[in-house]
């Protein structure tokens, strides 16, 4: 074995070692990435139509608070969650359902009857009766749910 061959052999081994290292790293790293981000990529569970209650409970012209229980499967745990929704109707036929979660940072807004406004206690965000932005740092109106009425029962589309 002359020097040249020796050199070649060592170059090969050197490259092969690096290659194996990269191979193993990838073999472990790629699944690891998939493993870590996997649940994040999962599509949010759709709940379909969630029954809120009878439409007769909705007061005309005043956002009315409804609560509904949903079962949410998170990972290996099934939680029963309560979602809270303000339902508003001006005429008793058309309903809008608004989430009570402030679009700013996710605090819970509350209806202040005297002022006819939603108020978020965290950073003084203010929404009007229909959820539109009035004041404060809020970026957009309150989120709305799709609503349907069947047999005088009020449903929202959960998601």
């Amino acid at each position: 074995m002359d020097d040249k061959q020796q050199l070649k052999r060592r170059d090969f081994m050197s490259i092969a070692t690096w290659a194996i290292g990269i191979l193993i790293g990838a073999g472990m790293g790629l699944p690891a990435i998939a493993y870590i981000i996997g649940p994040a990529l999962r599509e949010d569970e759709a709940f379909g139509w969630i029954r809120l209650g009878s439409i007769s409970k909705v007061e005309l012209g005043i956002p009315t608070l409804f609560k509904a229980k949903i079962e949410r499967q998170t990972g290996w745990i099934v939680n029963e969650e309560e979602i809270t929704v303000y339902v508003l109707t001006e005429n008793g036929r058309d309903f809008i359902a608004m989430s009570n979660i402030c679009t700013h940072l996710g605090c819970r807004v509350r209806w202040i009857k005297d002022q006819d406004q939603f108020f978020c206690p965290c950073h003084n965000g203010v929404f009007n009766k229909a959820g539109g932005v009035v004041a404060g740092p809020v970026p957009r109106p309150l989120d709305r749910f799709e609503v349907k009425v069947e047999d005088d029962q009020l449903f929202i589309l959960g998601g």
Binding site: R10, M13, S14, I20, G21, L23, I24
Partner: peptide, 23 residues
């Protein structure tokens, strides 16, 4: 020999085989 690459190459081969076996 030199540890790198002569011996480390062997180590790498064995590790790779082990890794494949585990997979």
């Amino acid at each position: 020999i030199f540890f790198f690459p002569d011996l480390l190459f062997k180590d790498a081969v064995v590790s790779l085989l082990l890794f494949v076996a585990l997979i």
